[in-house]
């Protein structure tokens, strides 16, 4: 079930070419991130996912083409980086990390006020971290750290929640819990969620729309359109089978298949 075509777009890519300096990483990107959509960006390592992510966050200007955002108001982006990007040596409490999502709103030279604290508490409550609000971020498990970062993004009440490899390095339980939380985030309040991952077997069970990045190109559509053996075999360069197991999407690489194109 993809996002209905009539839904307004919050970010629109029109024939965008992305890269660094003269080097093109992605070209011909035409994509609409519609309000309330649940979009997964998937591709092998080094395919250009991070480059695309940086352009969504506004860190990277397109070499050519156009990235349009709604006029009149600024899109609030709640970015959840890979948890490894936060150095645990920084001595911070869970609450200290979460409140950072409100710094822009609090403003320069101003202190955190009670209403800001309330919002942080609500965000921590939503991700199930309120009990650990006073704990040191560095003492948390990987899943708890990821929840803290999600709470930080949530506290800013974002229009678009961007998650970068949210289950990276997690065990099965951690992965299931985090993805369950992301599902809830999307379902409650109909938030727009964009998730970047190289773990298609995880993403495929949750997102509604999928963009596949491979060899400098992006193709996208609803899960039904994109989650096919042909497309995925072409993406990974090996025979990939897809199917359903007890209603859940599954995929696996055929054993003994010949690697093509990569």
């Amino acid at each position: 079930m993809g996002t209905p075509p009539g839904t307004p777009s919050i970010v629109t890519y029109e024939d965008v070419v992305l890269g660094y300096g003269e080097g093109v990483v992605l070209s011909g990107v035409d994509l609409q991130i519609r309000a309330g959509s649940y979009l997964g960006i998937v591709g092998p390592n080094g395919s250009g996912k991070t480059t695309f992510l940086r352009s969504v966050l506004g860190f990277l200007r397109p070499i050519s083409g156009r990235i349009r955002r709604p006029s009149g108001r600024r899109i609030r982006i709640g970015y959840v980086p890979q948890r490894q990007s936060l150095d645990p040596i920084f001595p911070l409490r869970v609450r200290d990390v979460a409140v950072m999502g409100l710094y822009r709103e609090i403003g320069f030279m101003r202190r955190v006020q009670a209403r800001h604290r309330r919002r942080v508490e609500e965000a921590l409550e939503f991700v199930g971290m309120r009990e650990l609000a006073e704990a040191s971020y560095r003492d948390l498990s990987g899943g708890q750290q990821q929840r803290t970062l999600i709470a930080r993004a949530l506290a800013s009440e974002p229009d678009l929640l961007v998650l970068d490899e949210p289950t990276n390095g997690m065990d099965l339980v951690g992965e299931r819990n985090i993805m369950g939380l992301v599902d809830r985030l999307h379902a409650q309040g109909d938030r727009t969620v964009l998730m970047v991952s190289h773990r298609l077997h995880v993403v495929c069970r949750h997102v509604h729309d999928l963009a596949l990045i491979s060899e400098g190109k992006m193709v996208h559509g609803s899960m039904e359109e994109m989650f096919t053996s042909e497309r995925l075999s072409a993406l990974y360069g090996i025979p990939v089978r897809v199917g359903r197991l007890e209603g859940e999407r599954v995929l696996f690489a055929e054993s003994g298949g010949e690697v093509t194109g990569r």
Partner: peptide, 10 residues
């Protein structure tokens, strides 16, 4: 702590 995130929060 996290330059990219801070930048993403404007």
């Amino acid at each position: 702590l996290d330059k990219d995130s801070a930048q993403s929060f404007a």
